[in-house]
Amino acid sequence: MSLLKVAGLGKAFGGVKAVDGIHFELAAGELLALIGPNGAGKSTTFNMVNGQLPADSGSILLNGQELVGRKPRDIWRMGVGRTFQIAETFASLSVVENVQMALLSVDDRLFSFWRNASDHKRDEALDLLAQVGMRAQADRPCSELAYGDVKRVELAIAMANSPKLLLMDEPTAGMAPKERNDLMALTKQLVVDRGMAVLFTEHSMDVVFAYADRMIVLARGRLIAEGKPLELRDHPKVQEVYFGSGKTFEKNQAAERVAPTPVESVA
């Protein structure tokens, strides 16, 4: 049974159709990669699922509930989490306080200024940090962390509302090869442990081939292919629109090879 069902989704800016009637589904316990060249409509699709952009047409169902027309905060409360291409944390706060701020928001107490964040659900925040391998750095300021560790903290923050669906926009952007592998292996394990679904955009094809259960490919706002990554490796249309003449998935992977650690597939 599908957790997320997107049907006939469309969005235009002026006379340009950024997303043109796309359809796809995503099941719990699955990682789905959304790929395509620049301008394909990936970010616009993400922003419509998240409620940051209103859809012009179509439907986005989460467990049968319509998301189109809802505000981002309402969608977040329905169990949709998100991480961003550039990690968003409060640099002046400690690692654990960043997670506690997210837990305050879950409890609708973010603007209770008389209550110190350090007093709120510290144990729960520490547990979330333990899940992403950051428990030992809980009391360090975020400003002191390496970028890969900041991305782990952002992932813990995204887990604060116990999401059924997690949206990850270019999760490994700006990361070294080992950091990319570590973060996606961690994400895969969280999917297995929590039974949630992940929709992610990604330019690094080594990450897609190593960790995505399926992928969908957009070009000029339209869905041109979907299936298991290895099945689409030699798809002529995908090769053409994603890499252009003379380029292949294999050449792209060779340029950024990381030899990812094997991870069991999600059933």
Rank of each mutant, 00 (worst) to 15 (best):
P236F: 06
N181Q: 12
A158D: 07
P262F: 13
G51H: 01
K178Q: 14
K247F: 15
I60K: 00
A176K: 14
F200R: 00
G41E: 02
R109C: 01
E264D: 12
S92K: 12
A33Q: 03
E25C: 09
I157G: 07
E179F: 09
A197W: 02
R115S: 01
V266P: 09
V19Y: 12
E250I: 10
A255H: 12
G41L: 00
A117G: 05
T248V: 11
K228P: 06
K178W: 12
K71Y: 09
A91L: 15
P171T: 02
G8F: 11
G39T: 11
Q65D: 11
L53V: 09
M78H: 10
L190C: 05
T83K: 01
L165Q: 03
D119P: 05
Q85G: 00
D108G: 08
A173M: 00
N63M: 10
K121R: 15
Q137K: 15
T201S: 15
E25A: 14
L3S: 03
D206K: 07
G29I: 12
K251Y: 11
L129V: 06
A7N: 13
M1Q: 12
A259Y: 13
A219N: 15
E256H: 15
D56C: 08
L166M: 15
D139M: 06
I22G: 10
A254D: 04
S204Y: 14
V263K: 11
S105Y: 08
P260W: 10
L26I: 09
K247S: 13
D169K: 06
I86V: 14
G174H: 00
G21M: 09
Y211I: 02
A125H: 13
I216T: 15
S204N: 15
A55L: 08
M215T: 07
L165M: 05
I86Y: 08
L167P: 03
V96I: 07
R82C: 06
I60R: 00
R109P: 01
K11H: 14
G195H: 12
P37M: 01
L232K: 01
R70E: 04
L230P: 04
I75P: 04
S94Q: 06
F113S: 09
D107V: 05
S112F: 12
D193A: 12
A225F: 04
L103W: 09
F24P: 10
L186V: 11
A254L: 08
C142L: 02
L61M: 01
G221P: 02
D234F: 14
I22Q: 02
F243W: 02
K11C: 05
V258K: 10
V6K: 00
R220M: 13
S265W: 08
G79E: 09
S112A: 12
L223E: 13
I86C: 09
A158T: 10
N47S: 01
